[in-house]
Design a protein around this nucleic acid. Structure first.
Lengths: 228, 228
DNA sequence: CGTACCATTGAACCGTATCAACAGACGTGG
DNA sequence: CCACGTCTGTTGATACGGTTCAATGGTACG
């Protein structure tokens, strides 16, 4: 059972935004709050999937492991977002690992209860379809980028996606350590560092640790397409 | 409106398998049959998405284009499968191009009608969630393979996935031209050709045009993991 | 204060792309 | 029926992007 503050937070997730107070209360009744410390593993690939999660604060990384221990970050999830909603329909096993980027607080939503709510609430099922389809769309784009774009283009694309402004100048923080973002982009940390350095030398971005400043979004966008 | 034969075919799709005859008839009432010749474009990325499709015979390739005209095959769809079911929830635009691999016959299912059925039929929405989640799962694996595996490992993985048998010996046909499969695997046709040749030289596969013979699935599986 | 860990930079290496030439299959039209 | 052009697939030589290995500096944290 959650307190009122947490219930209010839940409503921020697109998945829950359209629910009636009653329905939301029903979800909240079966949710549990939990805390993770930096780097803590929430679940492993292949684990029985009996719940999905909403991030109250902090961030999570979802990743796959190769036999040699090499890892690939599939997705970075931020506060206010849900993750692993799709797993219930995937034979009940998580397809990825999940670990906390830093100290994090999550709400755990039990699948059995959730499915009951889903079956009784058609508009909720439609919301869920929209949410999962969006992720599908993003993954399709990742696949395209991985095989059609260079490391530099993917980095530029990532910066443009995560920058708060649409045009002109922007300043913002990277949402995770650079090695994690590198993996998300399908490159090695060394390459990520070199690419950022070369973008800096071109005058397209300014660097200060995890802080990024883009003086001219238009120029960066143009570079991404022409690489000149 | 479809004939009985087509309606029977529809039931083969996992998405429709659990529908009652009434429900299936409702879908079929709003479906239209259409033919495509080799290479014909069914829709483009960005087109308004007002329908999805079921393949009666033939195959389709779904792909993305880079500004320079370079293309990346996202998915190959075979007879008996549906595609583009998720698009409705993606802002109503197709996120990919779709073209026929060879002569093909499709059933076109109108989205507006389908959504009406979906809203009235909760178990259908759950089926749809399962179907889309499966695709999500496959894409996650593609992303992992693209950034963690070599070209050789991806080719071996593809052959193992598409081979009819589970162990021992297998013989089968590639489901599309080699350049299309190469794009699906994120490599160039030349590389695909070289990889197949080297697997042949290692005695792991036998080649005869589009025909593939795998004398020992276990050996190929083992090679995929160790590359030795 | 010392010890990890993260980020950066350099040099050598490797996998895949690129460019180019060629052989075979196919369909078309003379 | 054969000559032709087109398209797919194969093979070789070379170029390039990104990785790997290695060394160094900075910074957070116990």
């Amino acid at each position: 059972m959650l307190n009122d503050a947490d219930t209010t937070l839940l409503r921020q997730a697109p998945l829950f935004s359209a629910l009636s107070p009653d329905e939301l209360a029903q979800i909240a009744a079966n949710a549990r709050s939990l805390e993770l410390e930096t780097g803590a593993l929430l679940f492993r690939e292949g684990d029985k999937a009996d719940a999905f999660y909403f991030i109250v604060s902090g961030g999570m990384r979802l990743f796959k492991l190769a036999p040699d221990g090499n890892e690939k970050v599939i997705e970075l999830i931020q506060a206010g977002e849900t993750f692993a909603e799709a797993v219930v329909f995937l034979g009940g096993r998580y397809p990825v690992y999940a670990a906390a980027l830093g100290p994090a607080r999550l709400l755990r939503i039990d699948m059995a209860d959730f499915i009951r709510t889903l079956k009784a609430n058609n508009s909720m099922a439609m919301k869920m379809l929209a949410s999962i389809s969006l992720r599908l769309h993003q993954l399709i784009n990742d696949v395209r980028a991985l095989s059609l774009e260079t490391a530099g283009q993917r980095v530029a694309g990532y910066l443009l996606e995560h920058c708060p402004a649409q045009s002109g100048t922007a300043t913002f923080q990277l949402p995770a350590h650079k090695n994690v973002i590198a993996s998300r982009l399908g490159i090695k940390p060394e390459t990520f560092s070199r690419v950022l350095a070369s973008l800096r030398d071109l005058g397209l971005i300014e660097l200060d640790g995890p802080q990024i400043r883009i003086p001219d979004l238009g120029k960066l966008r143009h570079w991404r397409e022409t690489c000149v």
